[in-house]
């Protein structure tokens, strides 16, 4: 590939970089990008990164992320970086941080868990790293793979 911009830069908005290769579509779902979205969105998948193999990138114009969205992204892509762009400049850049506990953002996979029975309680998990492992606070069920499918 020749040098140059793979996708265009944005004026105001967010660049989510170093997304685990293949997870860009899940990231877009997390931040609510769908066929009704009018903002400019650029997506690059399986881009060769500088340090560690392939990565995905999502850029969205005119939008910043809330902490709940950042937590969700950290679960499926723990090395992602968030760049806040204003007037084409990066005004803030940080790596997502895996929270030690999450509440109400992932559904427990155990159908018989109390959080899946219509009770008013939100799901809750403790989070361990390398690999990302979720343990249900209520039923002890462990989620190790396909976390994106369980996002609420």
């Amino acid at each position: 590939m020749k040098d140059g911009l793979l996708i265009r830069s944005i004026e105001h908005g967010t660049v989510i970089d170093h997304i685990t290769a293949g997870q860009a579509l899940s990231v877009m779902r997390i931040i609510g990008i769908n066929n009704g979205t009018s903002a400019v969105v650029s997506v690059a998948m399986n881009v060769p990164g500088e340090e560690m193999g392939l990565k995905d990138i999502v850029k969205i114009e005119g939008r910043e992320l809330d902490s709940r969205e950042v937590d969700k992204i950290s679960l499926i892509s723990p090395d992602a970086t968030i760049n806040i762009i204003r007037d084409y400049d990066v005004v803030s850049k940080y790596t997502v941080e895996l929270p030690s506990e999450i509440r109400g953002i992932v559904r427990c996979r155990n159908p018989n868990c109390i959080t899946n029975t219509g009770e008013p309680v939100a799901s809750a998990f403790t989070v361990a790293k390398d690999p990302v492992t979720l343990r249900c606070r209520y039923c002890d069920h462990i989620i190790l793979s396909d976390i994106a499918e369980q996002l609420i």
Binding site: N112, C113, I114, T115, T117, V121, R137, Y138, C139, D140
Partner: peptide
């Protein structure tokens, strides 16, 4: 249901003793 007692303890003002929650 698994986890019922843990949830109950979060709503209860008195002590809850789990006497079996599903296969938990």
């Amino acid at each position: 249901s698994e986890g019922a007692a843990r949830m109950a303890s979060e709503y209860s003002r008195v002590p809850v003793v789990n006497a079996g929650d599903g296969v938990g």
